[in-house]
Structures are given as structure tokens and as C-alpha cells.
Design a protein around this nucleic acid. Structure first.
Lengths: 104, 104
DNA sequence: GAATCGCATAAGTATCGACTTATGTATCGG
DNA sequence: CCGATACATAAGTCGATACTTATGCGATTC
């Protein structure tokens, strides 16, 4: 049982988009705010939820706060999905194919 | 982008529990209702959301409705996760190990 | 064909959650 | 120091949503 927080964190599209950007690059709150059509407090609140779910990490530097996706942000989710994967062996085969392609 | 419906469907703990049971066995609405502390309409409503997200399939038999987890219920979620896996190659290695163990 | 069963839908309620503006608190520059 | 900057927190609003009870509707049973 991955902390239910991650499911709630992923439920909001804006929050998913924030996480996507933080997966591509470390950014400050100002950087993120510029990229979305919501206020800075809204971004801070989304970041607090993502942090509470262990999906992002914070690094303070002066008056700036740099955020980035946590390395194991989705490990809990992967583990949860893996439980069901055992019921569907054919999906494992499909996944193997994907991984094989990534090797080439 | 996997349909956002799946994220919303997974957000509710009761709905996740319903899905978990349907992953283990095909069940009727009555069966499910007995297993939870909510009303039958509440269960029907959760099933409608899960069905809308393509996570469960319905089979009618007389006045009973049998539900089961769809075989590819989590494929959209897997695909979404896979996008981030590319950013973290070390997690791919871990996954390969898991799959290797499943082979043995 | 009347009563019952299994389930879905309708309608109302109350809590949750995503947003806003306003304000607080450090940090930096002059 | 004093204003400005970067961010977080407070407080309020409004729509989404998870639940309830009531009801509808087809399938069974007698």
C-alpha cells in the first residue's frame, strides 16, 4: 500500500503538469508560476501537496526555493501497479518488449 | 497522455478498494456491497466511474451485473509512469531485475 | 400478474479541494 | 534601514464529489 497521498497528488491535472516540468528540470517557484495560468500561492500549494506525497524535493538557496522531482517519486505507484501485473502475465510480456526496445 | 479519468478514478480510497477486489475475482454488485460499509447506490456509482475510466468491464446475466477488472485497466497508467522512467535509468534496471525474477 | 429481487438513476446534502486575494516572513540590494 | 523580491501561509469562495434516501425498471418467482 503506497501512501494514498500519491494518488491524491496525481488526481489534479495542474499538479501533474507541475510534476512533469519538475521531472525535466529543477526550477524555482517563480519559474513554475510563469509557466502556468494560476497564481503563485496556487503553485506553492500544489508543491506542498507533491512534497507531502514524497514526489518532489526542495532545496533552499537564499530567498529562492528550488524544486525537483524526487528520484523515487513514482516507486510507490510502480509497486502498486506491480501487484496487479501479477494477475495479467500478458502485460508483463508487453512490458518486456518495451524495455527491450529501450535497450536498442 | 492517458485519459485523465484513470487518475481521478484512483483518487478515492473506496474506489481503489473496489478495484482491488475486482482484480482478485469477478463479483456482482451485491457481493461488493456486502464487503463495504457504504450503500448499494454508492457502489454502483463507484463502478460507473471505474467503467468510465475503462478500468472495469461489465457482464450482464439476468438481473445480476458481474464486474471484473479490465485486462488493460492500468496500461494507461503504466504508459504514463514509463515516460518518467526514461529520466531515471536506474529504475529501469530495478524493473528488469524484477521481471527476471518472475521468469525464474 | 403481483410481489420481490438486483441494480441503476434521481435528487439532495455536506464535505473536500482548487482557487483567489491579502498578509506574513525571510533575504537581498540601495 | 528601507523597499523590493521570493516564497509561504491565512482566510474565504465556489465548484466538484462522495455520500445519503427515494424511486424507477427489467428480470425472476410465486
Amino acid at each position: 500500500m503506497p501512501e494514498p497521498d500519491i494518488f491524491r497528488a496525481l488526481a489534479d491535472p495542474t499538479r501533474r503538469a507541475v510534476f512533469e516540468r519538475l521531472s525535466a528540470a529543477e526550477m524555482t517557484v517563480s519559474d513554475l508560476t510563469r509557466g502556468f495560468d494560476v497564481s503563485q500561492p496556487a503553485i506553492s500549494q500544489h508543491l506542498a501537496v507533491l512534497k507531502g506525497a514524497g514526489m518532489v524535493a526542495e532545496r533552499r538557496e537564499g530567498r529562492q526555493a528550488w524544486y525537483r522531482a524526487a528520484p523515487d517519486a513514482l516507486s510507490g505507484l510502480e509497486a502498486w501497479v506491480a501487484r496487479y501485473r501479477t494477475f495479467w502475465p500478458e502485460r508483463v510480456e508487453a512490458l518486456k518488449t518495451v524495455l527491450k526496445e529501450m535497450d536498442e
